[in-house]
Design a protein around this nucleic acid. Structure first.
Lengths: 332, 332
DNA sequence: TTGTATGCGTTATCAC
DNA sequence: GTGATAACGCATACAA
């Protein structure tokens, strides 16, 4: 538990100057094979680790990425975790650390981590349609990548799943199955009101496809208490035709509610959903999955390209395409 | 996009010395009301933020907590997210940031964040029964708090949910309902083999209670592909008595499988589970919930007590008690 | 109550 | 190919 060794200690043991130690570590100038060896041996012997703060101070970089994360959100925990995991792994592959910032710090969170030089770049998850953080990002001297698409993407780096395409796929699938009327179980009121940008995008995709396929839409909302039974009873009961249902939220609850109502998915009712891959599998749902891992990978590629200065011309918006996987909840 | 202001800039504008600015921010010595005002005004005017690296270098503290997180684990994403969220919020309340470290860096992750002086304390999630990180922690000059209970807790700070008590509650509930035989759907092989410490703890609780209540246990395992239908068919079909089932893993899949088998929970079969609160509600299960938020809160209390030097005598192990909530999956 | 001066452990610019 | 040395921005011991 004695004091941590510094590069000076390494230098002394290796019999070189401190700056040489630094150059061995950074590789920023040629080093003879013999001194490199002696330095590396000394480093190993002392289990020397460079002091991150000193490095940040002198080197003007932190080797850290800040991630602004909305814990309470329209996304499921699974989806959020997938984002965070993939981002963290990508960061480590490039020897960067991840600083977790809660979105409920608001725009100040972004200002803080950048102002304090805590990171070299920022990932903002779940940007709003009209998000102050987008305005701030344009003024910042470091890369900020958004997951989501705000209204005005000018000068921003945005990546996301193609929710509009997803909405269209879901409607098309039910239309192909012959449904002229489709019931949509949409997000609860509080989610819609928080202005998440993908709510309108998904909605647009659904509505355009419905118009194109001449499908009548009936929108329902998950109640605040997540008890969807009455909603689904209202939508599906007492019908002569076979109901077609799109689930956007409260998916496990909805599947269970249908079962309680005596409706077998794929038999008595066709169900398609927007969900994570895992949830769709667990519930056996024909679904469009939101591919958080693909999105994260592209986010980090773009982010490091910006840090490396190897980024091609600004893309502004990059969308991961939607695909539909058929499972037991629809009968073809 | 000009250079970030420093405390020297603040000092110049406020007409004081740089050290006075520092003391105003830290509150470590008395400052006259007038100078405090002028400094604070200057800070606001420049939107000054202290440089985290410089602060860490000079002040020997980072105001950051590292969290070592197992993304792929026996826990659900919900449970992991609850931990991370609660830890992050608690950290922010004390003006600390959170550094996310993936557990698959192994013990080196712990060495690295500490060696580089990236944090003032560490939280290690899901410690193994015999975890090298526990040995390392004992040698480190900063607080390390474990979520979980390794075999040898000597000199460690461990907190967790009382899995042993949980196991007993689940068995007792089914015994109270008159079940003389209980089928347990346990974790998949890979989870058990990863040596998570709560697997043996839960198992011990189940087995002791079963012995005490004279209940026969039949252990089953979730298959690698998570298709639990054959397992549950095997356990519950062709029986004259009413099956009693304990679910420890793959809970949504299991509930769906029972439904597919034509078994109504609470009517044809009594089901109790170890799960998150949310999952139990979604599935309507009588369950013991693992209270990740309570555990996290206690972890952070302990951690900051250690940082403040106000920690009472070492506790070594602190367990959050288990409670059972009855829902529709058991009929009393 | 305030100012001066030093050091924290790196990086990077000069010199050699 | 290597060694001095000056920043980097802040905290704090020492003066006043």
């Amino acid at each position: 538990m004695r004091k941590a060794p510094t590069s000076k200690d390494v230098a002394r043991i290796a019999g070189v100057s401190q700056s040489t130690v630094s150059y061995v570590m950074s590789g920023k100038r040629p080093i003879s094979e013999t001194t490199r060896r002696r330095v590396e041996d000394a480093i190993a012997q002392l289990t020397y680790h460079p002091h991150a703060g000193a490095r940040a101070l002198a080197g003007h970089r932190t080797d850290a990425i800040a991630v602004i994360m909305p814990f309470r959100s329209a996304s499921t925990a699974q989806r959020l975790m997938a984002f965070v995991e993939e981002i963290t792994l990508a960061a480590r592959r490039r020897d960067h650390d991840v600083l977790l910032v809660t979105a409920d710090e608001g725009p100040d969170g972004l200002r803080r981590v950048v102002g304090r030089s805590l990171c070299d770049a920022v990932v903002v998850m779940e940007v709003g349609t009209n998000d102050e953080r987008a305005r701030i990002a344009r003024t910042l001297p470091l890369p900020v990548v958004f997951i989501g698409v705000p209204e005005d993407t000018h000068g921003l780096e945005c990546l996301d799943f193609d929710f509009e395409g997803a909405g269209a796929l879901l409607v098309d699938e039910l239309a192909d199955l012959g449904h002229g009327t489709v019931d949509v179980l949409g997000w609860p009121r509080d989610v819609v009101e928080t202005n998440y940008n993908y709510v309108p995008r998904l909605t647009r995709g659904v509505e355009r496809a419905a118009a194109a396929r001449d499908v009548e839409l009936r929108w329902h909302r998950v109640p605040g208490d997540h008890d969807v039974r009455p909603v689904l009873a209202d939508a599906c009961a007492d019908r002569t035709d076979r109901p077609g249902l799109i689930l956007l939220a409260a998916i496990p609850e909805a599947v269970r509610a249908l079962s309680d109502l005596g409706l077998r998915t794929g038999t008595d009712v066709d169900v398609v959903a927007l969900s994570t891959e895992a949830e769709a599998q667990e519930q056996g749902l024909t679904a469009v999955s939101t591919q958080p891992r693909d999105v994260s990978r592209r986010v980090m590629e773009r982010l490091f390209a910006l840090l490396d200065g190897t980024a091609p011309e600004a893309r502004e918006v990059d969308l991961v395409p939607a695909t539909l996987v058929r499972r037991a909840s629809t009968r073809r």
